[in-house]
Design a binder for these strands. Structure first.
Lengths: 149, 149
DNA sequence: AATGAAATATACTCCCT
DNA sequence: AGGGAGTATATTTCATT
């Protein structure tokens, strides 16, 4: 499906504030509220829009540390790890990747003791490398229309 | 501020569907719609809720590749890079981190030619390492209340 | 595919507890 | 801090173009 100019505008608005009403979106893009509702529903049905998520402050929830942890799985330990990782509440995102490491994870942790405990859970699955996040340079940047394509 | 049990429920609902109405949230947690609105507004004002974002499908928008790229900045090149990276549309997230590399980025790209162009832009700032994302094991996992804390 | 209109649902403001 | 009432606004459905 081709995303037309109006849908790109709608997606831009929903990326900046997903709780914006259809009526308000309509005022921004020059459509009536039912027209906006229909376009959004279609993009949801087509899987262009996967969902709407509140973005929370980790510190307020008691997570003072964020870390990026890579894992180079031991022989035969990748599948067990994949089953385990979905149960770990600390893991925000986890990707299988190419390269020397198989796995990269973004995790939140209460403090350094929590980090230590967390890493200890991983040692049976493979060799880990931990990078503490110092600051966010870019965070959840909205996706824009490519110039070409 | 302490997040009470009802606010944790509200945050859980908003993480799974940020476009849920206050009335529907109220039905789930046993509060009236104005009470829900007041609680949400307070959490927004306190910075517990940072925003509401539509989650989009990268493939549908013409981005077929996702990659994790680390950068080990050359002497004096970190600051210029930090100014540059905020202008790069391909970068979804970028963190300063501890360890051998200074920077880690999550980027989306149309294809391998686009990846090549993108990496070429970075070589003046430092040494890069690229990992192609093969699959998502965990994606945007909601933050839950810690057992302790 | 969008509009306009009617019915329903929701949100907002204010006052009360 | 939350409930309830009243008003304004939004959503949904449907007929029409």
């Amino acid at each position: 499906m081709k995303i037309d100019s109006i849908n790109w505008q709608i997606l831009g608005l929903l990326q900046s504030n997903a709780r914006m009403t259809n009526a308000e979106i309509g005022r921004n893009v020059g459509l009536s509220s039912p027209a906006v509702a229909e376009r959004i529903k279609k993009m949801e049905d087509l899987g262009i829009i996967n969902g709407y998520r509140a973005e929370l402050d980790f510190g307020s929830m008691g997570y003072q540390l964020k870390a990026i942890i890579t894992l180079r799985a031991f022989m035969g330990k990748l599948k067990p790890f994949l089953q385990k990782v979905v149960q770990l509440d600390e893991v925000l995102n986890c990707y299988r990747i190419t390269g020397n490491e198989n796995i990269i994870m973004e995790v939140v942790l209460a403090d350094q003791y929590h980090l230590e405990e967390f890493i200890d859970q991983l040692i049976t699955y493979g060799e880990t490398r931990t990078h503490i996040v110092l600051s966010n340079v870019v965070e959840n940047s909205p996706i824009r229309r490519k110039i070409k394509g």
